[in-house]
Design a protein around this nucleic acid. Sequence first.
DNA 1: ACCTGAACACCGTTCAAGT
DNA 2: ACCTGAACACCGTTCAAGT
Lengths: 227, 227
Amino acid sequence: MARNTKRTQRGETSLSRERIIEASIALLDAGGEDGLTFRALSERLGTGAGAIYWHIANKSDLLTAACDAIVAPTMRAAVADAAPRAAIRAIGVGMFDAMDVHPWIGSALAQAPSQLPMVRIMEAIGRQVVALGVADAMRWHAGSALLHYILGVAGQNAANTRIARERNLVRGDFLDAVAAQWAALDGEAFAFTRSIAPQLRDHDDRLDFLAGIDVILDGVECARPRP
Amino acid sequence: MARNTKRTQRGETSLSRERIIEASIALLDAGGEDGLTFRALSERLGTGAGAIYWHIANKSDLLTAACDAIVAPTMRAAVADAAPRAAIRAIGVGMFDAMDVHPWIGSALAQAPSQLPMVRIMEAIGRQVVALGVADAMRWHAGSALLHYILGVAGQNAANTRIARERNLVRGDFLDAVAAQWAALDGEAFAFTRSIAPQLRDHDDRLDFLAGIDVILDGVECARPRP
DNA sequence: ACCTGAACACCGTTCAAGT
DNA sequence: ACCTGAACACCGTTCAAGT
């Protein structure tokens, strides 16, 4: 959209796509998804709201660009691993840790399917699935299952963080509140949910996330014949 | 929040939680997530914008309630199946078909973690995982993997539908556009993505979705020892 | 108990006008 | 080429006032 590759005389003070994205990430980290507004952004950058539109097409593009600025280096780092299974776990861990610092990327990814950040994750996973020696017919399904699983976790994490923030709760208190809510459900209709409510408090999100990736990888490696 | 269980004299014309939710679903189906505004809603219901707040706490609750009105009967129908693996597939298919008619439930689910609609899906899946005879230690991971996978697909479907609508594209043209976008990526950095771009056009979302569920179920059933 | 509708405090985006 | 900042067309939500 906007051409901005050319540096103007003063890279420090003048507006640029990079400075806008950098400031956007700071706002998103500090205030969640709602923290990013063109007014807050222009104030932080010491410029007018309209100026930003010279460098960026719209808010959706801005959010995607901010997300990509997190995802791109994360994927670059994860790919360094050697064995395919370890590399896939590294991709997962990399995403999980990035989400921990920048929870908003969960909703950013959900809003920008088939865009660069999502494609980067797909590319990284796909390569490792191929390296894993997965049969041709299974590749798409394996990659798609892993990708959607990661996106699902990312979305939930983002939402949980947002809600905890809105209610001014730290993680432990938030989980307690959810557990209490589940425990109060009808005993017959929600027997399973009630039975796992106590586990909510003590579970380790990160280990659970990795366990899910292992489940999918196991499924890919020992696919049984389908009816 | 609002007490509304008591019927007033004219169930037909007077405002009620059910009428509001029904109208909300109609607006969401017709115009996507952006279609639901308190102004459009009050116009459709022939009332003032403020009147709705007597029956519903806020927009977030309204969206969640609308989502639950879709999810609850879907889960009820899916649970009718007998064998656990078939039942889990039925839950998946039920959600997929519901998403096809009401794509916005994808983002509604993403915005309301640990709320009723999501709990219903978790409950339905959890029961079947137990019925499957999954070892105690594996239950949580199995249920969580299935749930997050379904939520991931739901979110992507919702976003794809939204974007296609925004650009006034039918599904085929939208997929062509994405495939063209992917094909134009750098050949070296995005070799995998480029290689699967042609498959985008002809793939069957529904079959892929079910294949993903099967991958996870296979992984659950033949878990291999972990390092 | 339930509804009205104007008002409030925001949004993203545009665009004539400046330099 | 790049920036300003007022203006536009919206939002969700509140609340005094009505019935």
